[in-house]
Nucleic acid binder design. Structure first.
Lengths: 159, 159
DNA sequence: CTTGACCTTCCCACCATGTCAGGGTTCATG
DNA sequence: CATGAACCCTGACATGGTGGGAAGGTCAAG
C-alpha cells in the first residue's frame, strides 16, 4: 500500500496521500466502475496516472466522490449533480441557485411518490376484494381486463 | 381504412374486424413501437400479417393490449405482466396466485415510496435552512460536502 | 401514376449500474 | 530475482421501458 509515497511517514505532511481506484472506492462508497464512468462522462476530471497507467486519487478527489455519492443517495440525477458540483466549486455562487435545484428535485420526488401512492391505493382495494384462494374468480384480473368493474370503478374519484 | 375487409358492412358479423398497428395503438393507448416490442420479447404472440406484411390485430388482441396497458399503469413490471397474462388466460388459476403477485408489487412500491420520502424529508430540512439569496453560504452544499454539519446530523434518527 | 399516410426492419440513445473477458502492474514473499 | 496474489486497465454487453430515426415497402385516394 501507499503506492508511491515515500515510506517515510513522520517528515512528509501526509497531505499528498494518493490512492488507487480500489481504495478510493472503498473509502467513498462509489464503486470503481462508477468512478471510471464518472470520469468518462466528464463529471470528474481525469486524474493523474502512475507510470503503469493506474489512476491515482488524492484526498480532495475523495472529497468530490463522497459529494457525488451523497447526492446520489438523495436521489439527484447525474445532470443535477453536474450542476451541484459546479456550484460547489464556485465560491461565489448564489445559494438561491442551489436551493432552487433542491426544490425542483423535491417536487419531482413528490410527483413520483404521488403516482406510486395512487397505484398502491388502487391495488390495495383490488387485493382486499380478492378471495385469494383456489378459486379462479379474481377482481384484480377483472380490473386489468377492463371488465364492467363493480369494485373500483377505476377509482376515478377519491384522487 | 379497413384494409382488407370487404367494404360490405351490414352482412358480415363485424366480429372479424382487423386493425393495423397504428389503429391498434390509438385504440389501446399502447404505442406501435411498444406493440412491436412486446411481440419481439414474446409478451404477445405474433399476429397475422397482410399479404403486404402488415401486422393485423383483431379485437381480442386489442383486449390483451389494453390489459397490458392497464397493468403498466399500475406499475407492474414486464416480468410480472407476463405472469399476469398467463394467469388471465388460465381459466383455472387460483386467485391466491394473482393476489400474491399484487401484494408483492404493493410491497415493492411501498419500499420505494419510503425511500423517496426519506429523501424528501432530508431535502426539505436542508432547503428550510438555506437562505436562498445571493450569498454563497448554503447548508445544502455543506451537507453534500459532508461538512461538520450543524443542521441535519444526516438525519440518522427519526427514520 | 403520383402523393401522402402508413407500415416494415434495423440501429442507436437514454440512465445508472453490473458483469465478464483478456490482458497489464504492483508488491510482498520466497 | 522470480513468482503469485491482488489489483488495475480497456472494452464490450446487459439491464428496463421507451423514444427516435433511417431507408425502404404498401396502400388508397386523387
Amino acid at each position: 500500500m501507499n503506492l508511491h509515497t515515500p515510506s517515510n511517514t513522520a517528515r512528509v505532511p501526509a497531505k499528498a496521500a494518493r490512492h488507487t481506484i480500489g481504495r478510493a472506492a472503498t473509502l467513498t462508497g462509489v464503486s470503481a466502475k462508477m468512478i471510471r464512468h464518472y470520469e468518462t462522462i466528464g463529471l470528474i476530471p481525469r486524474t493523474n496516472r502512475t507510470p503503469g497507467n493506474y489512476r491515482t486519487y488524492k484526498d480532495s478527489d475523495l472529497h468530490t466522490l463522497r459529494f457525488i455519492q451523497r447526492a446520489r443517495t438523495l436521489g439527484f440525477s447525474m445532470a443535477q449533480i453536474r450542476v451541484l458540483l459546479s456550484l460547489w466549486r464556485n465560491r461565489s455562487r448564489p445559494s438561491a441557485q442551489v436551493r432552487k435545484l433542491a426544490i425542483d428535485h423535491v417536487m419531482e420526488l413528490k410527483a413520483k411518490i404521488d403516482a406510486m401512492q395512487a397505484m398502491v391505493r388502487t391495488l390495495e382495494t383490488l387485493v382486499q376484494h380478492c378471495h385469494g384462494d383456489t378459486r379462479p374468480e379474481c377482481p384484480i384480473l377483472e380490473d386489468l381486463a377492463g371488465e364492467p368493474d363493480k369494485v373500483t370503478s377505476r377509482q376515478k374519484a377519491s384522487r
